[in-house]
């Protein structure tokens, strides 16, 4: 079947990545790894831009989730069942809003992954690799997903050396700090001295 016009436009550039060493299998792995890495990088960049653009709205919903969740725990600690159920319901509603918003924003991270998968499927359709130890084969998609995960683990190590992602990390750390604002037992019921000594 014919290649999609988008893939036809990408193909001459991407296929060069598969002609680096001259050894077909090594070229395939290396090329697919670079494609996976580029897909991951582009996804990370667009996800961070989407995050910056929607930050105000994320702040608002996160604040509601944390507020009502804290309140539900305060009510639980005070033994007020009605207040607990009311706050739990509101926390649930706020969670729903936050969850859907994040679903939509997550697509900013994933679109290059699907674009790359599509090109690989169109380019290497029918190519299969047989396991050395078992009579099973995997397609190019499986190899790509594995290398995408590997790129993710690699990129995580170098990501915050780039100024843009360092700035994003500072903002995300603030969210983490706020999620810690969620009441813990010790906030509501301060531990007796003996317990503190035991844990320290």
């Amino acid at each position: 079947m014919e290649m999609h016009p988008v893939y036809l436009a990408m193909d001459p550039y991407l296929i060069r990545l598969y002609r680096i060493t001259g050894c077909s299998f090594a070229d395939f792995l290396l090329g697919t790894f670079v494609v996976a890495f580029v897909a991951l990088f582009v996804g990370e960049v667009t996800a961070s831009l989407a995050f910056l653009a929607a930050k105000k709205s994320i702040d608002r919903t996160t604040k509601d989730v944390i507020r009502y969740r804290n309140l539900s725990m305060e009510a639980l600690a005070a033994g007020d069942k009605d207040a607990y159920e009311a706050a739990n319901k509101l926390a649930n509603d706020a969670f729903g809003q936050s969850f859907f918003k994040q679903i939509a924003l997550s697509s900013a991270f994933l679109w290059p992954l699907f674009l790359a998968l599509g090109w690989l499927n169109a380019r290497f359709s029918g190519v299969e690799f047989t396991f050395v130890t078992a009579p099973y084969t995997v397609g190019v998609g499986c190899i790509f997903i594995t290398l995408y995960v590997a790129s993710y683990l690699l990129f995580r190590r170098i990501k915050y050396r780039l100024p843009h992602f360092r700035r994003i990390k500072t903002m995300l750390d603030a969210y983490d700090a706020r999620s810690v604002e969620v009441k813990k037992l010790s906030d509501v019921f301060p531990l007796p001295d003996s317990a503190v000594q035991r844990t320290s």
Binding site: A77, A83, A86, A87, L90, L185, F189, P192
Partner: peptide, 30 residues
Amino acid sequence: AAKQAAKAFEDANIRKTAGTEGKTDSKSLG
């Protein structure tokens, strides 16, 4: 109603919880 109940509890009890110190022990953590 849920909002009112939550607000009423927040107004009336949020500071009182500090006074519950010592009502539980470390065994109930988490």
